[in-house]
Design a binder for these strands. Structure first.
Length: 466
RNA sequence: GUCCCCAUCGUCUAGUGGCCCAGGACGCCGGCCUCUCACGCCGGAAACAGGGGUUCGACUCCCCUUGGGGACGCCA
């Protein structure tokens, strides 16, 4: 049997981080087994579905590097097929018309709550004769669910889950307006699309029991279920808007790399021994459902940033330069000059060791594109007091005479100067750093001189010498 | 309220009855390296929710309690 999974978001917003992980697991599982993933948009709630959300979800998936087979499938477009199944169930005596009004149902729930029972529909139309139906009311179609025994699913993550049928009511399949409910639509679509494995959040666990009843009554073989635990916010509560960054594009904007987010999301709820750094190719080879844990995980930004810094350091430098250039242009709100552009590949190796995010990287590259006179940070300004200006004047003279502006020559020149002045290197390096970068922390001072070039370096030094 | 699920360091987790007075990673603390900041390296503090069983032996199996989460819509 070939493996076909599906990612089935409802288009009511961006690609939620939890949804992203669900998509990743579906994708990985399909890839691992040589199958493929389908994308189905659960848009049967017309009032809440938007095209913008559909686009945002696809963008998010693309950015994350997850692909699916064929065109996205609109669930709403298949409403006719769903209704057909509902009518078939009705004709077979496995479903029935129910004429309860919304207020009647609300009342039912309240009474049940007051009496401490579960909030279920009481099945009052289940066995009524058709001629008792009110003339002017449109009915819904409800499933005639089994009333005794139990319904069981063998979940690939959660194990065997059993619910007594007395705990469940007759769910609505088709609304009074003839449109299908989610519960019916998922089952029909998953069946028609030949989905072999349903991998989704465990908030759907009890839904799986209800869906199982439909499969059984239709005489269909149910797919394998795998309900993965939810992701919680850093405070342990359910992830919500109050926790800030939620959509994958928010992480992109924070300067997180797709590879890092993938690795992070993978390790949230799934493990392979003590392995931490797992790139996609390895993940595909290793991923399986038995590595998925059963308990919810909290989202931890420092951990994500740590992984991100790893991927920043290990990614192709040319590609990283391109990302850095784009980020710099964005924050500067101007194009980079050819001279500035040329500094990027020189400095990228030193810069990437120090960055946790792309934003961070651009910030640390700031001195490469800053105009004179340099804006001084407070701690840098402090390094330029006392005999620093005089020291810088000596440095200016010394550096002016450097024949070849390369790392070796610059290292030798600065070290020699420190020695002749009788100073520890730090005494000279810090004022130089301040003058050259406007900060008290940067890549090594010889490198900074090299990246900036002779003219720019001398100019920046002269701005602060006595 | 009813039903379902879950429970190892602050966080993510390894652990499938003896290999565990519990291992790794992030974070944190200390040190080394050092022109600063990072990187890297070395070291440290830090957990089996509680109580009963089962067993020669429980982190591992069973039960209860507690705590957390989820579901109870003509939403998905």
């Amino acid at each position: 049997m070939s493996v076909i999974t599906r990612f089935a978001p409802s288009p009511t917003g961006f690609l939620h981080i939890g949804g992203a992980r669900t998509a990743l697991f579906n994708w990985l599982f399909a890839q691992h087994h040589g199958g493929h993933m389908l994308l189905r948009i659960e848009d049967t709630d017309r009032a809440r579905s938007t095209d913008a959300a559909v686009a945002a979800i696809q963008d998010g998936l693309h950015w994350l590097g997850l692909d699916w087979q064929g065109e996205p499938i609109s669930q709403f477009a298949r409403a006719g097929r769903h209704a057909e199944i509902a009518r078939q169930l009705l004709a077979d005596g496995k479903a029935y018309h129910c004429y309860c009004t919304p207020s009647e149902l609300a009342e039912m729930r309240e009474t049940a709550k007051a009496e401490g029972r579960s909030l279920r529909y009481d099945g009052r139309w289940r066995d009524r004769a058709p001629d008792e139906a009110p003339k002017d009311a449109a009915p819904v179609i409800r499933l005639k669910a089994p009333q005794s025994g139990a319904t069981v699913i063998n979940d690939l993550v959660q194990g065997e889950v059993t619910v007594q049928n007395t705990e469940m009511d007759d769910m609505v399949l088709l609304r009074a307006d003839g449109t299908p409910t989610y519960m019916l639509a998922v089952v029909v679509d998953d069946h028609d699309m030949a989905i072999s494995h349903i991998i989704r959040g465990d908030d759907h666990l009890t839904n799986a029991i209800r869906q199982r009843q439909i499969y059984d009554l239709m005489g269909w073989t149910a797919p394998h279920f795998a309900h993965i635990p939810l992701i919680h916010g850093a405070d342990g509560a359910k992830l919500s808007k109050r926790h800030g960054a939620l959509g994958v594009e928010a992480y992109r904007d924070m300067g997180i790399l797709p590879a890092a987010l993938r690795n992070y999301l993978l390790r949230l709820g799934w493990s392979h021994g003590d392995d931490e750094i797992i790139e996609s190719e390895q993940a595909i080879a290793w991923f399986d459902l038995d590595g998925v844990g059963k308990s919810a995980a909290r989202f931890d930004i420092p951990r994500l940033e740590n992984l991100n810094s790893h991927y920043i350091r290990s990614m192709d430098e040319g590609e990283l330069c391109r990302l850095l250039g784009a980020q710099l242009q964005h924050s500067l709100d101007r194009d980079l000059s050819p001279v500035e552009l040329d500094r990027l590949p020189l400095a990228i190796g030193a810069l990437k060791e120090r960055a946790k995010t792309l934003i961070d990287l651009a910030d640390k590259a700031q001195f490469l594109v800053a105009g004179r006179p340099l804006a001084m940070e407070e701690k840098a300004a402090g390094l330029l007091t006392g005999d620093a200006p005089a020291l810088l004047a000596s440095a200016h003279v010394c550096l002016q005479s450097v024949a070849e502006w390369n790392l070796d020559a610059l290292t030798a020149a600065v070290r020699d100067l420190a020695e002749t002045e009788g100073l520890k290197l730090g005494k000279l390096a810090q004022p130089l750093r301040a003058a050259l970068t406007g900060r008290n922390a940067s890549p090594g001072i010889f490198e900074v001189l090299f990246f900036l070039g002779r003219q720019e370096s001398l100019d920046r030094i002269s701005d602060h010498m006595a």
